[in-house]
């Protein structure tokens, strides 16, 4: 009975995934969005940076970078808390 459920579930999943593949964008040809056009047209003038990727990462999407930096900071803090020097006498 369990295998029957698993087979039914897997076949439904496979059908969904294959239908999703058929409707994918072709690689390298993204669909047009207004936001991309705005960034490409105005980022160089507004921010003044030649590198549009950096101007998005640090200016338009600054909150994302702040979150990334905070995640890294928290990871380093947890590593320091795990591997801090513990003296043998205190154990």
């Amino acid at each position: 009975m369990k295998t029957a459920y698993a087979v039914i579930f897997m076949s439904i999943l496979v059908v969904f995934l294959f239908t999703a593949i058929t409707t994918l964008h072709p690689m390298g040809y993204p669909g047009h969005t207004e936001m991309d056009d705005y960034f490409i047209k105005n980022a160089q003038i507004e921010v003044g940076a030649n590198n549009v990727v950096t101007s998005i990462v640090f200016d338009y999407r600054g909150f994302d970078t702040l979150g990334e930096a905070t995640v890294l900071f928290t990871a380093v803090i947890s590593v320091v808390a795990l591997l801090r020097g513990v003296k043998k006498d205190e154990e």
Binding site: G48, A49, T54, S55, F58, D59, T65, A69
Partner: peptide
């Protein structure tokens, strides 16, 4: 000498 705070933020990060 362009891009405002972006180079400073790059250096900090």
């Amino acid at each position: 000498n362009t891009a405002g705070v972006v180079p400073l933020m790059n250096m900090a990060v």
